[in-house]
Design a protein around this nucleic acid. Structure first.
Length: 592
RNA sequence: GGGGUGGUAGUUCAGCACGGUUAGAACGCCGGCCUGUCACGCCGGAGGUCGCGGGUUCAAGUCCCGUCCACCCCGCCA
């Protein structure tokens, strides 16, 4: 027997009992006479004492112990002598007096210490991931991740969802992200694609009368990586029949409330705030707003018109916008620092940045273009006080909102205005279509199976909406869920009528043959009695990242990849044998 | 594809602007001492392809060019 309890489970009630423990040597303190070992397993740490008075043999062997040796210890649980308790650890009032010691496995000196107080470089952590994962912080991240998936399964099971697996070797869909391809040996020249999401399959399952489906499923996208993006990531994917937007939203709110209660003991207040896409863009310059702080973007067009500042007036004349954001506490910025801020705005796409400091009146090169009353109205609208700076961007609509949205975030970070907590919100009423400048046609903003709003279905089918403005005005039954400025999920009510789906492809200028080729199996399924249905996919990695306060999803994934999509532990990807390529009828064509 | 930051002992870093003895510190490691420590303490010791390649120079960790790797960001991610 290796153990009869875990290190973290040693408790007062066992005082006087003899216990057997196994684990890793975390830290050791060899006093020559007494030797103290902090023994660690997944459950926690307990102090083991080796004294020659208890066992000469065990004490002698304990001298040879080093960091991360795996040992088995048998000994008596005792209360620590008065004044030697360690309040830092849960078992700090106790210790185990070892009578027997067995070294189960020795360890070479480690490339880094498990209790390293400093940050270890990430390449090293990834190369020795098994050691990195021993660190209590990483251990905790994976425990929380487990708790989250477990409670999600419990919740959805109770709500009548079936967990159904969908294929990993599936069909490439040319729309969207780049696919990871897998060659088919038995079908030379043909390829599977790894799923970007189980989108089509989960809709098929609704056509199969499964009514409620979910899956915690790996998805793959061959795009460039970010702190919150890995080539393989996990979605909590679900789909429901006979539902409208509110039904999906309330299931997800119930699920997240349950998850936060069960894993973090945090009560979320529901329903979550809802913003329309339009509102979110106007107020925050993004469709994933961080609501943990203010600094909302304010409309300045009416006030700009009351002045004579040409940059503003020209932008409005050209059909653009003038809006502003509060630079909280930035009145003290030097000319040089303002130049840097301007450069930042320009890096986001702005032509320039107008500013007015509130410091003994209005201090700005552009103040002279506005009557005092207008300047005051600007300050009122932005909530600017003495010591603040007002920042303005005048440009086309997209640029104005985007730049101010990014500045808002940047200022909040710089000034430490971002509060704690978990601020969820829904962004709803997305446009159905989005103009694609490159392709010269409209694209589905969510995906081509997203249902238009009810009134827009009629407009779409009856009226002949084909002009740019008309198409831009169509709304979708799509929704995103946002947490602290991160998009953690998105979904929609789907089209379940074949005629609407046909019209949709027509608007997207996808010819019938092409649609049949790409999504034929779904379109066919819609013909044989498809229930109204909709669903959502949540990004599990991002959700857990935010829950544990990590800066990157790599810290909540056991074996993540680097920015070049390399696994430093296994060294994937790697070249393969010539024979393997030959079997697959693949010839390499690499230009040196 | 583009912009930025970094790469020096096992680890985390200093040294680089202004080139010039033997490249330092802390932690870790090795040896010794230590019966109440808990980031134990004390004494001693070992440990370096300054990412890699080229160039400038009497002389390069330091300057120049190229390149690789890691991270952050833009593009990209329906």
């Amino acid at each position: 027997m290796y153990r009869d309890r875990k290190c973290g489970e040693v408790s007062e009630s066992q005082i006087g009992n003899t216990v057997t423990l196994s684990g890793w040597v975390f830290r050791w303190r060899d006093h020559g006479g007494l030797i103290f070992i902090d023994l660690r397993d997944r459950s926690g740490i307990v102090q083991v004492v080796f004294s020659p008075d208890v066992s000469e043999d065990a004490h002698k062997l304990a001298h040879t112990l080093r960091s991360e040796y795996v040992i088995k210890v048998r000994g008596e649980v005792r209360r620590r002598p008065e004044g030697t308790e360690n309040p830092e650890i849960p078992t700090g009032s106790l210790e185990v007096y070892a009578s027997e010691l067995e070294i189960l496995s020795k360890a070479d000196p480690l490339p880094f210490m498990i209790d390293e107080p400093k940050e270890i470089s990430e390449p090293l952590r990834l190369r020795y991931r098994y050691l990195d994962l021993r660190r209590p912080e990483m251990m905790r991240n994976l425990v929380v991740r487990h708790r989250v998936t477990k409670t999600i399964r419990d919740y959805l099971d109770r709500e009548g969802f079936l967990e159904i697996e969908t294929p990993m070797l599936t069909k490439s869909t040319p729309e969207g992200a780049r696919d990871y391809l897998v060659p088919s040996r038995v079908n030379p020249g043909h390829f599977y694609a790894l799923p970007q999401s189980p989108q089509l399959f989960k809709q098929i399952l609704m056509c199969s009368a499964m009514e409620r489906y979910f899956q915690i499923v790996r998805c793959f996208r061959d795009e460039d990586l970010r702190a919150d993006r890995q080539p393989e990531f996990t979605q909590v994917d679900l789909e429901m029949s006979f539902v409208e937007v509110d039904d999906v939203i309330s299931i997800v709110e119930g699920m997240l409330s349950y998850v936060f209660r069960e894993t973090l003991e945090i009560e979320l207040s529901t329903p979550f705030e809802r913003l329309t896409y339009r509102d979110s863009m106007e107020r925050f310059g993004t469709d994933k707003p961080d609501l943990r702080f203010g600094l909302e973007i304010a409309e300045m067009e009416d006030l700009a018109r009351q002045g004579s500042f040409k940059v503003f007036l020209n932008a409005l004349e050209a059909g653009g916008r003038v809006k502003g954001v509060l630079g909280k506490g930035l009145a003290g910025l030097s000319r040089k620092e303002i130049d840097l801020l301007t450069e930042e705005a320009q890096s986001y796409g702005a032509k320039g940045l107008a500013w007015i400091k509130l410091r003994d009146g209005f201090d700005s090169p552009i103040a002279k273009f506005f009557p005092e009353g207008v300047l005051k109205a600007m300050a009122d609208r932005l909530g600017a006080e003495q010591g603040d700076m007002m920042l303005f961007v005048a440009d086309d609509e997209d640029t104005t909102l985007d730049v101010l949205g990014r500045l808002r975030l940047s200022i909040a970070r710089r000034q430490g205005l971002i509060g704690d907590g978990f601020r969820f919100c829904w962004v709803v009423d997305y446009p159905l279509l989005e103009w694609d400048e490159e392709e010269g046609r409209f694209q589905a903003m969510h995906h081509p199976f997203t249902s238009p709003a009810d009134m827009d279905i009629e407009r779409m089918l009856k009226e002949d909406i084909n002009d740019h403005e008309g198409l831009s005005s169509l709304k979708a039954k799509a929704y995103d869920i946002v947490l602290n400025g991160y998009e953690i999920g998105g979904g929609s009510i789907r089209i379940h009528r074949a005629d609407v789906q046909r019209k949709m492809f027509e608007l997207l200028r996808i010819p019938e043959e092409e649609a049949q080729l790409k999504f034929g199996f779904l379109i066919d399924a819609l013909r044989y009695g498809a229930p109204p249905h909709g669903g959502i996919a949540l990004g599990l990695d991002r959700l857990v990242m935010l829950m544990v306060g990590a800066d990157t999803i790599r810290d909540v994934i056991a074996f993540p990849k680097t920015q070049k999509a390399v696994c430093l532990l296994s060294n994937a990807p790697s070249p393969v044998e010539e024979k393997q390529l030959k079997d697959l009828h693949i010839k390499l064509d690499i230009i040196e």
